[in-house]
Computed example of a mutant assay.
Amino acid sequence: MRIALFATCLADAMFPRAAQATVVLLERLGHEVVFPSGQTCCGQMHVNTGYQREALPVVEHHVDVFETALRPRAQGGDGVEAVVAPSGSCVGSVRHQHAVVARRMAEQGRADTGLAARAEAVAAKTYELSELLVDVLGVTDVGARYPHRVTYHPTCHSLRMLRVDDKPLRLLRAVHGLDLVELPDAEQCCGFGGTFSVKNADTSTAMLADKIRAVQTTRSEVVTAGDSSCLMHIGGGLSRLRVGTKTVHLAEILAGEGWEAAL
């Protein structure tokens, strides 16, 4: 399959390994990965903080870039069949916010009336990594080896917006050598929530403390998740405690130990 990578701005600016590992993993499975160079932010941070008017050009640009990627090569596109992102929150924004923003702005005369339908068409082909692997490619054992004790944190957007359910866990259970330990109260939020952690710092810190206590009970070497933003928050708390537990994106584990050699 020919697949377009939506790297996300967070991966581009701070956590490139998640995007790189996604490419290594998919290519190892025999798929061709295309990187549409015009991509930028999905606009989630604008929408989540109430700036829908400002989000509109970002949403429109995202639709333009990936609509072109999904167009057949004979029609000037990249001929991809799907778009993948190593981020549940960004895919959640594409699926659940883009068309809503487009419709509201169209009602105000600020957007083309056809943008919402175009956004929905792109969203229908956009997948979070575990969704793409399990639902589209029909894979649970990706042939990875990762001999470490690992616990999994289901991020809020992947769990509640995308409803990926146990797909990440099914993928992790099939990783050779991996000792998967259940995280107590796994469905509780880590407290990040983008600007929530800034505007409601005390509440966010308390939620993070609960999450870190749960992680510590597992005695895991690694905490993994499908969103770099949540891992950044959890990792910051763990690093301050100097407990030795590190955070690793799901894509890196599925790419297998030593995946960097394939770059």
Rank of each mutant, 00 (worst) to 15 (best):
C9K: 13
C9E: 09
L10V: 13
L10S: 13
L10D: 03
L10K: 00
A11V: 00
M14W: 13
M14F: 15
R17M: 14
R17L: 07
A19D: 11
A19V: 14
A21H: 07
T22I: 09
V23I: 11
V24M: 03
V24Q: 07
E27S: 11
E27C: 12
E27L: 15
R28W: 04
R28M: 06
R28F: 15
G30Y: 11
H31L: 00
E32K: 14
V34Y: 04
V34I: 15
F35L: 15
Q39I: 08
Q39P: 00
T40A: 14
T40N: 10
T40Y: 05
C42S: 07
C42N: 10
G43A: 03
Q44I: 05
V47H: 15
V47T: 14
V47L: 01
V47K: 05
Y51L: 15
R53D: 12
E54V: 15
A55N: 09
A55V: 05
A55E: 00
L56I: 14
L56A: 14
P57E: 09
V58L: 14
H61G: 11
H61Y: 00
H61R: 10
V63S: 06
D64A: 13
D64W: 06
V65I: 11
F66Q: 13
T68M: 12
L70N: 06
L70T: 02
R71N: 03
P72W: 03
R73Q: 10
A74Y: 01
A74I: 04
Q75P: 03
G76Y: 09
G76D: 14
G77D: 06
G77R: 01
G77I: 02
A82M: 03
A82Y: 05
P86C: 04
S87I: 06
S87K: 07
G88E: 07
S89I: 00
S89V: 03
S89W: 04
C90K: 05
V91Q: 00
G92N: 11
S93C: 07
V94I: 07
H96R: 15
H96F: 06
H96S: 07
Q97E: 15
H98W: 09
H98K: 12
H98E: 12
H98I: 14
V101C: 01
A102F: 06
R103H: 02
R104V: 06
R104H: 04
A106P: 02
